[in-house]
């Protein structure tokens, strides 16, 4: 149990670093991070269930200059971790009803993460001061190495908050579903409504010209195609 939270913390910390401080190769985006988180906890399928809606929900989480986005990586690890651990406590694989509860409980962590990022930026002013002092002291190599010190704070913030969010979900979700088993059906519907809204959020975030036409057109076209294929197969 404790090991799972340690793993979650490390995954969240590394994702927070990859997200801004190093590389930025999309590995910390929900579409990649959720399956990896699930895999790290032994349930890649659970991660794969939440990855598409979370990616689409936060498709517009973009860092433009000094304007900060929500911390989608932190939210993703907490939600995925919470869902997998709650499923494990219930003795089942991650189901839509577990996943939607994890989303409802942990998604606000993405906003908390943005607040933390602001403080990290202020904290980083000190690294520049240290670097300037080292340069004045005649050591340029040491001066610029303070840059890497900036990786520590985002790692620590995500490594602490993501397991905390997952722990909350892992405690609340099994208790709730055991107490109110009839909630499962409605929650399942809630998951699909959420996933559909997430797709709409992705379309809105892309800000293409004539986006409504493309979104509604593709939605309608794919629905008709799907129904026709489904009808032909049955």
């Amino acid at each position: 149990m404790g090991l799972s939270y340690l793993v979650l913390g490390v995954v969240a910390g590394l994702a927070a670093v990859e997200r801004k401080g190093f590389l930025q190769a999309m590995l910390s985006r929900p579409i990649a991070l959720a399956p990896m988180t699930g895999w790290a906890l032994g349930d890649p399928q659970g991660g794969l269930l939440v990855a598409p809606p979370l990616e689409l929900l936060w498709l517009g989480a973009v860092n433009l200059g000094a304007a900060l986005p929500v911390h989608e990586a932190l939210g993703t690890v907490a939600i995925t971790g919470g869902a997998v651990l709650a499923g494990r406590a219930l003795g089942v694989a991650v189901s839509p009803e577990v996943a939607i509860l994890a989303v409802l409980l942990c998604a606000p962590l993405a906003l908390v993460g943005r607040r933390a990022d602001r403080h990290v930026e202020i904290w980083n002013d000190r690294l520049v001061e240290r670097a300037e002092a080292a340069l004045a002291g005649g050591d340029p190599g040491a001066a610029v190495r303070w840059n890497l010190g900036g990786l520590a704070a985002p790692f620590a913030v995500a490594a602490l908050l993501a397991p905390a969010g997952a722990a909350l979900a892992a405690a609340v979700i099994p208790a709730f579903l055991r107490a109110v088993p009839a909630a499962s059906g409605p929650l399942r519907l809630g998951f699909f409504a959420f996933a559909a809204l997430a797709a709409a959020s992705g379309a809105k975030a892309l800000r293409a010209r004539e986006a409504p036409r493309f979104f509604y057109g593709a939605l309608g076209g794919a629905l008709v195609a799907g129904l026709l294929i489904g009808g032909a197969l049955s």
């Binding site: 498709l59 699909f192 996933a195 559909a196 797709a199 986006a211 493309f214 979104f215 057109g217």
Partner: peptide, 13 residues
């Protein structure tokens, strides 16, 4: 990308 989001919505439905 917008069209892909529309397709994703249809698959979810």
């Amino acid at each position: 990308g917008v069209a892909l989001c529309g397709v994703a919505a249809a698959i979810v439905v």
